[in-house]
């Protein structure tokens, strides 16, 4: 972009998604779907937000969760494009279903 818009107006809502802040990550949260009870606490507190919540059958199928885990409850999935690796989800998960491992780059 070479010209600044009048009033520095940004006309495209939410276009910060072009910034892939996942590159900031030093530690990486990894959900263990065998332990996850789908309480949504990680989704609730992720500040980016970088935890997706899948409620319908179709999007659930696309998650990394094992098929036997796709019961009625919603499924959470970490969006590594944006996860900065703060570790809040890892710290708050009530059943310790999130591992926090060194990022490999």
């Amino acid at each position: 972009m070479d010209v600044i818009t009048r009033g520095a107006v940004i006309t495209e809502p939410g276009n910060s998604v072009e910034n892939k802040t996942g590159t900031w990550r030093v530690f990486k949260p990894v959900i263990n779907y065998d332990k996850c009870i789908r309480c949504l606490i990680c989704w609730q507190f992720c500040p980016e937000p970088a935890i997706l919540r899948h409620d319908d059958e179709e999007t659930k199928q696309k998650t990394p969760a094992p098929k036997e885990a796709l019961k009625k409850l919603p499924v959470v999935e970490i969006d590594y494009d944006y996860c900065k690796g703060c570790g809040i989800c890892y710290n708050e998960c009530p059943v310790h279903a999130i591992d926090f491992v060194k990022e490999e780059k």
Partner: peptide, 19 residues
């Protein structure tokens, strides 16, 4: 279930304000 606040912002990792 919807997000009206998009990721890709520059707040520090772990900042509470976006929550």
């Amino acid at each position: 279930k919807e997000e009206f606040f998009a990721p890709g912002h520059g707040m520090c990792a772990g900042c509470a304000a976006p929550i």
